[in-house]
C-alpha cells in the first residue's frame, strides 16, 4: 500500500526552503554575534523561528494585547515556534554568501580561483538547442533502433571548474588610539571578524594583512590584531604611507587587486596637509577598494569622513573605489559590511 509516498519529508524540505528566506531576512536579529563569534564551525546553534503563516483576512490585533488574553479555542499556546539548528558555518553562508569582492579584476599572476564553465557534460534534460545529436543517435543505436525516442535524447551540459585568474590582498587597519573606547573597539573588532571570516570562506587564497595604528602603524598578525591594544594619538598619514609602501613592494597593482579596510572613529586632527590627500588619492587610484568604517563617530561629519569625501571627489563624482559606512551599534555591522563590500554600491 503506497499511501504516503514520503510526501511529508519532501514537503518538509519545501517548507525549509521557504523558511530559509524568512530566516535570512531575520538572522541578524535572531542570533547574537557572541554566539557565533569564536565558535567552531561545526558548533550548532539553536534558534527559535516563528512559524510561517499564510495570510488571510483577519482583524488587526489590539496593540496592548499581551499574554493576558490566553483563553480561547484553538489557542494552544507555544505552538507557533519552530526550533531549528544551524551550524556556525551555515549561518555564515546565509549571511555572507552572496557577497563578492567588488572591482575584482583578472590579473596575470593569479592565485584566486575564479570560475569557468566548460561544456563537457551530458544530461537527459535541457533545451533543444543543446541536443547532442551524435550521443542521442548513439543511445538509439545501443537499443538497436534506427529512430529516436524521447528517452534517447542527450543534451550537452556544462560543469563549472575553478581556474586561477586573479589575486587579491586585503589590508585591515584598526585604529587603536586613545579615543577608541571599549565599545568602539568591540564594534570595530566584530566588523573585522565578520570580514575576515567571509574572506577566508570565499577567497581562500587571498592575502590578509593586519595593521593597528595610533600615530604610527604597527604591522601585526591576526591574533594581535584582535587582541592587542596600544594607546596614543591619532594620525593616519604615516599609516597610509606605510601600507602604500608595503603594497608597492610586495603587491604591485599590476598583479594584485588591493583592498584597504579601515576602522576608526574618525577623530583625527583636522590640520592635515596636502600630502595626506595625495596619499589617499594614490591609494584610490591603485586599489580596488578603500573602505572606511566609522565606528561610533561624530553625530555630524567627522574630520576623517569629510577628508575622505574631499579626497575622493572629483568634479562632483566620487571615485568608485571609495566606500564609507557608519557603525553606531551592533545591528549596523552587517549592513555596513554590505554597504562597503557590494558590487552595485556607489557613493553618489
Amino acid at each position: 500500500m503506497n499511501l504516503y509516498d514520503q510526501k511529508g519529508e519532501l514537503d518538509r524540505q519545501w517548507y525549509l526552503r521557504k523558511l530559509n528566506q524568512a530566516i535570512k531576512a531575520k538572522l541578524p536579529e535572531l542570533i547574537t554575534q557572541e554566539a557565533v563569534m569564536g565558535s567552531a564551525p561545526e558548533q550548532r546553534i539553536r534558534i527559535a523561528v516563528r512559524k510561517l503563516e499564510e495570510p488571510d483576512f483577519r482583524y488587526q490585533p489590539p496593540k496592548d494585547s499581551g499574554q493576558g488574553k490566553g483563553m480561547g479555542p484553538g489557542d494552544d499556546g507555544g505552538d507557533d515556534v519552530v526550533w531549528i539548528e544551524l551550524t556556525t558555518e551555515e549561518i555564515m553562508d546565509m549571511l555572507l554568501d552572496d557577497l563578492k569582492l567588488p572591482r575584482l579584476e583578472d590579473k596575470p599572476r593569479g592565485l584566486l580561483h575564479g570560475e569557468e564553465d566548460r561544456y563537457d557534460d551530458l544530461s537527459t534534460h535541457g533545451p533543444w538547442s543543446n541536443i547532442d545529436k551524435r550521443r542521442s543517435l548513439y543511445e538509439a543505436a545501443k537499443a538497436g533502433r534506427d529512430y529516436l525516442k524521447e528517452d534517447d535524447l542527450r543534451y550537452r551540459s556544462w560543469k563549472t571548474y575553478p581556474k586561477p585568474i586573479t589575486s587579491a590582498v586585503v589590508t585591515l587597519v584598526r585604529d587603536a588610539s586613545g579615543s577608541m573606547d571599549e565599545s568602539k573597539r568591540y564594534l570595530s573588532k566584530s566588523a573585522a571578524w565578520w570580514l575576515v571570516q567571509w574572506i577566508r570562506r570565499q577567497y581562500q587564497h587571498a592575502e590578509i594583512r593586519y595593521f593597528l595604528h595610533t600615530t604610527t602603524p604597527v604591522a601585526v598578525d591576526e591574533k594581535d590584531f584582535f587582541n592587542r591594544e596600544i594607546t596614543g594619538g591619532t594620525a593616519i598619514l604615516s599609516t597610509y604611507q606605510t601600507i602604500l609602501q608595503l603594497w608597492d613592494d610586495e603587491f604591485p597593482h599590476q598583479d594584485w587587486n588591493r583592498y584597504l579596510l579601515h576602522f576608526s572613529d574618525g577623530d583625527i586632527w583636522s590640520d592635515y596637509g596636502r600630502d595626506l590627500i595625495d596619499t589617499i588619492q594614490a591609494i584610490l587610484s591603485t586599489s580596488s577598494i578603500l573602505g572606511y568604517f566609522e565606528v561610533e563617530g561624530h553625530k555630524g561629519v567627522s574630520p576623517l569622513w569629510s577628508l575622505f569625501r574631499k579626497s575622493a571627489e572629483f568634479q562632483g563624482h566620487f571615485h568608485p573605489a571609495m566606500r564609507m559606512a557608519k557603525i553606531d551599534n551592533k545591528d549596523h555591522i552587517l549592513p555596513a559590511i554590505r554597504t562597503v563590500i557590494d558590487e552595485q554600491n556607489r557613493l553618489q
Partner: peptide
C-alpha cells in the same frame, strides 16, 4: 503536496 503540510509534519515529528 504543500509546504504547510511539510510544516505540520515537521512539528508533529
Amino acid at each position: 503536496r504543500h509546504w504547510t503540510h511539510g510544516e505540520r509534519y515537521w512539528i508533529a515529528k
